[in-house]
């Protein structure tokens, strides 16, 4: 179980990835006035356009709740998609460092998740404001959103490791991931609700892991904590176990050879 030990080692000495995460954010938004809030503004723009369309063309009765739901979904999706997309070029970006010093590449997985998570945190005030404005209430079940978030973070960490190694060796993986992320944006109930599709489509949704990620974070925040949360939780747990065993193999057979392909 070296794979697990190495991950724990990254967490016991987090200086490497914390340092780079903070620098990444500073560098990314260097010389801009609003910094990481630009990310939030981009999302607000998307939400505004979609909300306006909804207001003009569809039933405006649940408008406040619709905007709140849409905001949680879009912000959370952007966190997931940005994390997954950046995994595809992560090792290529670290080529210089990896050619000079042996560094455990799992540090970069933590760095990428942490960087994107910090950017995502900038959108939390907007979500809280919208929670106050909407008809949803503060309930103890809101805390389950944190459990859901933790579950998604573990999943992203494991999927990210897989994508990072595979895209360094197989150059097509980058394009495949980009296209899949794009496709899943429309195939996941982010800008649409699962209640508007047929039962058959709803059944197919259970095979979409991103649907479960969204449910785990969004449902508790929308006072919608029911058996669907448990189902998604169980499916995500299953996903963790599956990817973990795939990653064990990658760790043993491919990880240390990756540098030769960069």
């Amino acid at each position: 179980m070296n794979y697990l030990k190495e991950f724990f080692k990254c967490f016991s000495y987090p200086d490497i990835w914390i340092f780079y995460s903070h620098k990444n954010i500073i560098l990314k938004y260097k010389d801009t006035i609003l910094g990481p809030f630009w990310n939030v503004i981009n999302s607000i723009f998307l939400i505004s356009v979609l909300s306006l369309s909804y207001f003009l063309f569809l039933d405006p009765d649940n408008f406040k709740n619709f905007v709140y739901r849409l905001s949680i979904s879009v912000f959370f999706w952007l966190f997931i998609s940005a994390s997954l997309n950046s995994f595809t070029s992560l090792l290529e970006d670290k080529k210089d460092l990896l050619n000079e010093k042996k560094v455990d590449v799992k540090n970069f997985v933590c760095e990428n998740i942490y960087t994107n998570f910090l950017i995502f945190l900038h959108s939390i005030p907007i979500i809280l404001i919208l929670l106050f404005v909407s008809d949803f209430k503060f309930q103890l079940s809101l805390l389950f959103a944190l459990l859901g978030l933790l579950m998604v973070l573990i999943n992203l960490t494991l999927i990210g490791y897989f994508i990072m190694i595979m895209s360094a060796i197989y150059k097509d993986v980058k394009k495949i991931v980009e296209n899949l992320v794009y496709a899943f944006f429309f195939a996941t109930p982010i800008i649409w609700s699962e209640s508007i599709v047929s039962e058959n489509i709803q059944k197919i949704l259970y095979f979409n892991p991103f649907y479960h990620f969204i449910v785990l974070f969004r449902d508790p925040l929308m006072n919608n904590f029911n058996e669907r949360f448990y189902v998604s939780f169980f499916i995500c747990l299953l996903l963790i176990v599956t990817i973990f065993f795939i990653n064990l193999r990658i760790n043993k057979r491919l990880e240390n050879k990756t540098i030769l392909y960069l």
């Binding site: 620098k23 560098l27 210089d96 460092l97 990896l98 050619n99 000079e100 010093k101």
Partner: peptide, 12 residues
């Protein structure tokens, strides 16, 4: 070590 020509530095 001092191996790679870029010394593992981040140019930014």
């Amino acid at each position: 070590s001092m191996i790679d020509i870029n010394f593992g530095f981040n140019p930014e």
